[in-house]
Amino acid sequence: MNEQEKVKFFEEFNNGLHRLGRITLIAASLLLIAVPFMIGILNDVSPSGTGFLSGFAKVGIIYIPVAIVEFLVYAPMLGVGGSYLSFLTGNVTNMKIPCAMNARDIAETEVGTPENEIISTISVATSAIVTTLVIVVGVILLVPLQPVLQNEALLPAFNNVVPALFGALGLKYFAKSPKIACIPLLLMALLCIFVPAAINQTSLLLLPSGGLALAIGYVLFTKDKL
């Protein structure tokens, strides 16, 4: 295959991936959305419309911009096939991108070439399949442990899973960006000390806290102090 034939073949291959990617992503999205409704039907309950809208508004304001930024930044790194698979199977930054980079290094392909694109897709697809298999094995092993996991003695553990997450994550992010973290952390702590009603409204606190951190980050970035 000469260079021109290769380019033409690759263009057709990519168009095929786009078609396949779109169809399968639409189908997968519909399946994912159907799951909560199916659980509702099986248990004779339906989702709360107001609860959903209120929750989605709070989640969307944070995660839709994050999703757009991630899409713009990571899609060029992952290529066509890699992007469709990565954005559906998740763990993009902590697994799919390093995995694809590692495979490209091993295969010694050059950025922007069809070979690079093919290796990325193979790498991301393999990674997603392996993760699914590992979790399936884990879940099979986890099922017999359910009576242990549901023991009342473990209630404090599962009731504090969110503090455990934000303690660990907080250390990581605060250490990474202490200049951004100081003011939002201090203000949120003071707010919750002096206005106890705010304590159980963390979903609302995220907005001023996130906005403030973004603004401080931007100021520091423009002053080259990040």
Partner: peptide, 29 residues
């Protein structure tokens, strides 16, 4: 660009809100 820092800043804000609420919750009252 600022894009990479923006995501970090967003998560810093997120963690600050939660940790702040745990500090508030720990005040004896």
């Amino acid at each position: 660009g600022f894009g990479a820092h923006a995501t970090t800043a967003m998560f810093v804000g997120l963690c600050a809100a939660y940790i702040g609420s745990y500090i508030g919750k720990a005040i004896p009252r």
